[in-house]
Structure formats: structure tokens, C-alpha cells
Simulated scan of single mutants.
Amino acid sequence: MTSSPTSLDQLKIGMRARISTIDWESLDHGEACRLRHFGFDEGVAVQPLHLGPFGRDPLAVRVGRMTVAIRRNHARAVSVIPEAA
């Protein structure tokens, strides 16, 4: 059974997924470069770890073996496919 894609900001905390696509056009150049440097790319494993205390921003995400903080509106540009538990 294959899960349907969802945006990274909608993924439940602790749920593992793989990046299916990233809408680079919706991000400004600096943020797109930042996400690329953090390792965001198609096929990479991601897992949201926790939310910030105010307005649920930023979102802490494990990308591969690294943990990074990104804004929820940037996480919205990342489509993921949840992995089976």
C-alpha cells in the first residue's frame, strides 16, 4: 500500500517520510539555497521532530542524519510520501 503525498508541514511529528518533490519556484533564492545546503532533495529521508513554541514555528526536521529548523511556510513547499510504520 502506497501512501499519498502530503506537504512536510502537515506530516505528524515523529512520522518518517521521503521527499517526493520540492516546489523550488515557491521559495525565494536564498531559502532554496539554504534547503539545498541542508540536504533537501528528492528521495531524501525526513522526519519532523518538534514544533516551535509560538505559532508552531519553526519546525525541527531530521534530514538524513542532520537536524535542522525550517519555517513552516518553507516546509509547505516540500512534498513527502510517508513511510509505512
Results as ranks from 00 to 15, higher is better:
P5W: 03
P5R: 08
P5S: 15
P5D: 15
P5V: 07
T6F: 10
T6L: 14
L8I: 06
L8D: 00
L8G: 05
L8A: 08
D9G: 02
Q10C: 15
L11A: 01
L11E: 02
K12N: 07
K12A: 09
K12R: 15
I13W: 05
G14L: 06
M15Q: 12
M15F: 09
R16I: 06
R16K: 14
R16V: 02
R16M: 14
A17H: 01
A17W: 00
R18E: 10
R18H: 08
R18C: 08
R18Y: 12
R18V: 14
R18P: 02
R18T: 12
I19L: 06
S20H: 03
S20F: 03
S20Y: 01
S20P: 00
S20E: 04
T21K: 11
T21H: 14
T21A: 09
I22D: 02
I22A: 04
I22W: 02
I22R: 00
D23M: 10
E25H: 13
E25I: 13
E25C: 05
S26G: 12
S26M: 12
S26Q: 10
L27V: 08
L27H: 07
L27M: 13
D28W: 11
D28C: 15
H29N: 15
H29M: 14
H29Y: 14
H29V: 14
G30D: 15
G30R: 14
G30N: 13
E31F: 13
E31Q: 09
C33T: 11
L35S: 05
L35Y: 03
R36G: 15
R36A: 05
R36I: 11
H37I: 15
H37Y: 14
H37Q: 14
F38S: 11
F38D: 12
F38R: 05
G39A: 06
G39R: 02
G39Q: 04
G39N: 05
G39S: 03
G39L: 04
G39D: 06
F40L: 06
F40H: 08
D41V: 04
E42S: 08
G43Y: 11
G43A: 09
G43H: 12
G43Q: 06
V44C: 01
V44Q: 07
V44E: 07
A45L: 10
A45Y: 02
A45F: 03
A45Q: 07
V46L: 04
V46I: 13
V46N: 02
Q47Y: 03
Q47I: 00
Q47V: 00
P48T: 06
P48E: 01
L49S: 08
L49C: 07
L49A: 06
H50E: 03
L51F: 10
L51T: 05
L51D: 00
G52I: 01
G52R: 10
P53F: 09
P53N: 02
P53S: 08
P53C: 11
F54V: 14
F54G: 10
G55L: 07
G55R: 11
G55W: 07
R56G: 08
D57A: 08
D57F: 01
P58N: 04
L59R: 02
L59H: 01
L59K: 04
A60N: 05
A60M: 13
A60P: 12
V61D: 01
V61W: 02
V61Q: 00
V61G: 00
R62S: 12
V63C: 04
V63P: 00
G64D: 01
G64N: 11
G64V: 05
G64A: 03
R65H: 04
T67S: 04
T67D: 09
